[in-house]
Simulated scan of single mutants.
Amino acid sequence: MSLRGSLGMSTPDDDDDNGDVIKVHYQFSAMAVRRVVDALSPEEQDLIRSIGFGGLLHLTRYGKLDRHFYAWLVNQLVTAALALAPGVSGGPVFLADGAGAELPVTARDVHEVLGVPVGERPVGRDPTDADTAAVRRALGNMQPTLPVVEAVLGQRKARPSEGPMTQSERDSFGVAFVLFVAGHFLAPPPAGRREKVNVDIFHALGNPSPSEVRLFNWADYVLQELRHCAVRVLQQVADGCPKILLSGCLLFLQVLCYLGSKSSRFSAALSCRARIFFI
């Protein structure tokens, strides 16, 4: 079974319940992040900029996004890496157009498109007890889950007249924001783990000061998850799975596809297919 052949090129109004042989599922949600961003105070926006995630403040509102097109895009990722351990960047990644042309994809591309830090320290490893304890402290000693971090992000809305944030509140807010955007937008996991945060980033949040958070390569972390997703989808297609589980920042691939269609390095085949999703 070929994902390219089975999915074809569906329109933005396609629905998974329309009788397609292959179902596509993901937890990616740009709107979840947009909802939080819309409610940020000027002080909270400045804090987000200070930790290097200011690009996400400009995230555009999107309507319904075509999951079959996303599955097609993931299937166009070409990676030299197979199974990668957490924290291992792996080989180069390319976005193919299905007609022989390949566009290199780098962490720098992620940085420029999404506006997240591209520091020198790698992101992504199994958390130590100390990492987990530090994150729990930042969240008020609560169990780290996506509902909890969203609640932390909204705490000050109930106390708007308390004045400037304390350092403890700033640390808590910064940790909660990064966990929230990682779980919903930058590197959401495959479907089926809706409330879990990305524990593999705990080590990068142990010291939530802006000078520390910006030192990590969050852009490469986004690329890592897309690489893992591409490997997993390739295996799911090879195994003839009726359900494709996507993960990672799918919107980045859509933007990259559009930008690639404008580049002379990419073939006209992708150009024609990409533009219909941006008109």
Rank of each mutant, 00 (worst) to 15 (best):
T145P: 01
V123P: 05
R265E: 13
V113K: 01
E150K: 14
I279P: 13
N198R: 15
A191V: 13
L73S: 03
A133L: 14
G124A: 04
R232I: 03
P122H: 01
E225N: 14
A204N: 13
G87A: 05
R227C: 10
L59Y: 01
Q224H: 14
V21H: 07
P164T: 00
V178K: 12
E195W: 10
D200P: 07
R137F: 02
D66V: 08
E195D: 15
R67E: 03
V110T: 05
R214D: 07
R4D: 15
R61L: 06
P104G: 13
R227A: 04
R227M: 04
L57E: 06
K157F: 10
I22Q: 02
V74W: 08
S211K: 12
N217D: 15
P12W: 05
M142I: 10
G90A: 06
V36A: 05
L270V: 14
H184R: 14
F94P: 06
Y258D: 09
D38T: 01
G52V: 02
P242K: 01
P117F: 07
G206S: 15
N75T: 14
V148P: 02
E212V: 14
P147D: 01
V152Y: 00
G248I: 11
L251D: 14
A99K: 12
C257R: 11
W218N: 08
A176L: 09
G100E: 01
A130M: 09
A96V: 05
G19D: 03
D14M: 01
K23A: 06
S10T: 10
N141F: 09
P12V: 01
I51D: 07
Q167T: 00
R121T: 05
D131P: 07
F69M: 10
V178G: 11
P104D: 08
L65W: 06
K262A: 12
L139H: 04
A85M: 05
Y70V: 11
L226E: 12
G174I: 12
S263E: 09
C229V: 09
L223C: 07
W218L: 09
A182C: 15
L215T: 15
G63N: 00
G115D: 05
P190V: 14
V118Q: 15
I201T: 09
S41K: 09
R61W: 09
E44L: 00
A187E: 11
E43F: 06
G54V: 02
C272Y: 13
E120W: 10
A158G: 04
A134H: 05
D220F: 01
H25V: 15
M31S: 13
Q167G: 03
A130E: 15
A71K: 11
L73N: 04
P92L: 11
L205H: 08
T132W: 10
R273Q: 14
E195H: 12
A138L: 00
P144H: 02
Q254C: 04
G100P: 02
I22M: 00
R35S: 13
L253V: 08
N217S: 15
A99N: 13
A130D: 13
E195S: 13
L259A: 07
